[in-house]
């Protein structure tokens, strides 16, 4: 089992800011738009470097999405920035018609996704955005897990031709993936190989899955941990290969259990390799105010709940380890 450690904690949104600056350096066609949240989206470095390629649109997200679609005509690669809630639910029809159906090369970049937005509460804590975005034909959906992966993903989506929803968050979290890594859209990352259960995690839950893996190992359970950063297109091959080996599944995500990563995995398995699955996700509810840590604990999105889900699913699977529990 690989041991993961970290020397610092950083926010994934800062990874976006760093990636956007680098993407802007590499390609002069990269432009950025923001709806009055420059500081929150960490876009200031890009603005300082390329002021003529940045557009402040004010609190007008619908216009921002439409403008981004228009900017692609003539070859620009627009990155829009606002909170996940205002990046998706508020502008769903604009994304659907002007971006997705029109096949425009727009990168919708969304910070403060999920419960870890914290104290602002449920009005701002969208838990439905992955579902909304993955239902749009042609949309790529990515949810990153730490600073380095978010930076790499931002650079990668600039080089990919097509609409992308890139989801990241507000709080500082461990930086445990490699700096200057190559990010492959649609390719799952094997965090740790194992044989007893497959844990598929995305976003902030990847670190929790790693912690859960350590706790399980201490109890003699050898969990396979796979990071699904690209929820659409899903790396079906990686999912099937792992589950064929382990026979049972836990999915972990900072999202409503309806319509998120768990459902994407379940859909693949139901048709190709039916297997017991447990969800670590928000149980079809809104969030509320609190610190990120309090909320993740209250709504069951932490390593302890991943450990419990693993034990449940192994029991259901009747695996040899399950008998010991």
């Amino acid at each position: 089992m690989k041991k993961y450690t970290y020397s610092e904690k950083k926010d994934t949104r800062s990874g976006f800011g760093a990636g956007l600056l680098e993407a802007g350096r590499r390609n002069t066609d990269v432009v950025a738009l923001c709806a009055d949240l420059i500081g929150s989206l960490k876009m200031q470095d890009f603005i300082n470097a390329f002021p003529e390629r940045f557009f402040q649109v004010g609190i007008a997200e619908a216009n921002m999405i439409g403008m981004a679609a228009g900017l692609t005509i003539g070859g620009k690669i627009p990155f829009t920035g606002t909170f996940a809630n205002f990046s998706t639910g508020r502008v769903y029809d604009q994304i659907r018609q002007s971006v997705a159906y029109s096949g425009k090369n727009v990168k919708i970049c969304a910070s403060h996704a999920g419960l870890t937005l914290g104290e602002d509460g449920a009005t701002h804590q969208i838990l439905e955005d992955i579902g909304l975005m993955k239902m749009l034909p042609g949309m790529t959906v990515i949810n990153t897990c730490d600073f380095n992966q978010t930076k790499a993903a931002t650079i990668a989506v600039a080089e990919y031709d097509g609409p992308v929803y890139l989801r990241f968050g507000r709080p500082v979290v461990p930086v445990f993936t490699a700096p200057d890594q190559e990010f492959k859209i649609g390719k799952a990352w094997m965090v740790n190989e194992g044989i007893d259960v497959s844990i598929f995690a995305t976003g902030h839950l990847v670190w929790e899955a790693i912690l859960a893996g350590e706790k399980l190992a201490a109890e003699g359970i050898n969990a396979e941990i796979i990071n699904i950063h690209t929820i659409k297109p899903l790396d079906e091959e990686a999912v099937l290969r792992s589950v064929a080996k382990t026979g049972c599944v836990v999915t972990a995500e900072e999202h409503n259990r309806l319509g998120g990563l768990g459902d994407s995995i379940a859909q693949v398995l139901a048709s190709k390799l039916p297997s017991p699955q447990e969800y670590v996700a928000v149980n079809d509810s809104f969030g509320e105010s609190g610190t990120p840590e309090q909320l993740m604990k209250k709504y069951g999105l932490d390593s302890e709940n991943i450990v419990k889900a693993v034990k449940r699913v192994m029991q259901r699977a009747g695996s040899r380890k399950g008998v010991l529990l």
Partner: peptide, 22 residues
């Protein structure tokens, strides 16, 4: 660009106009 759901074309036109300027 696709249109039909109303109110979106002016934003798209602005984006295209900005690209022309750039």
């Amino acid at each position: 660009v696709a249109s039909g759901s109303l109110g979106q074309g002016l934003s798209v036109a602005i984006g295209a106009a900005l690209t022309k300027k750039l």
